[in-house]
Design a protein around this nucleic acid. Structure first.
Lengths: 115, 115
DNA sequence: GTAACCGGTTTACTTTTATAAAGTGGTTTC
DNA sequence: GAAACCACTTTATAAAAGTAAACCGGTTAC
């Protein structure tokens, strides 16, 4: 019976936290869009497509709460609101790239099977 | 206006795939438990705790479908069923560790704020 | 003055996810 | 023969997540 390292409960909590923060249908799409460059509300909505105002607003609030995104209001008329990925938000890049890498391998694997 | 690399739609699909596979309240817990060593249904249930039979069975089926876990039935009486992480399942370790690392940093950050 | 854009919020609804508890068919233990 | 374990499945319900569409106050363009 081979034994590999078991994650401590502290690690498990950290894992839940990370998953929790990434959870939500549009969060990753939002961060990927903002990683390109900062955007306004409607710009984000057009860029992501299919997302409703309600969902975009909800997920942006959650990202803001976790300090992954900043929201800046300018006193133009009509008001301009800019969303930007924080430097802290950028630290998620490694995680996201790992997910992309694994996902790409997974897709290749699936395609091989279908032939 | 600084431009960073934008993820291609292919990468975005891969990202959705990966998130999709990790999605579900107990999936990561199951894989972490099985990473330690293979286990039977009730062993898993006791190890994870709080998970209902229905959920465990559902999530195991999904993991099996994605070939991350194998299910082996032995003709003992009563039947023995063993779940084991596949070598493919083990390739998720990098992803999981990235998530753990980020989560740990995140928790430290939160604690600093609370002082 | 009316249509359209901005950055949302509200309402009403559907879908998905998760829970708790009981049941199933078989086996072993006493 | 009663209780308990195994690996589940079924039923019924509740909570969470997501959607579609209308609405809001304000501003600008025609």
């Amino acid at each position: 019976m081979e034994h590999k390292k078991k994650l401590h409960s502290k690690d498990m909590l950290a894992l839940w936290d990370a998953m929790d923060i990434l959870n939500g249908k549009w969060k990753i799409a939002i961060m990927c869009s903002l990683n390109e460059n900062k955007k306004r509300f409607k710009e984000l909505q057009r860029d992501i497509g299919r997302v409703t105002g309600k969902m975009l607003s909800k997920e942006l609030k959650e990202l803001e709460m976790n300090e992954l995104v900043t929201r800046t209001v300018f006193n133009t008329k009509p008001v301009t609101v800019e969303y930007e990925l924080t430097s802290y938000g950028e630290t998620l890049e490694h995680v996201i790239l790992e997910l992309v890498n694994w996902g790409l391998k997974h897709r290749k694997r699936i395609l091989r099977k279908q032939k």
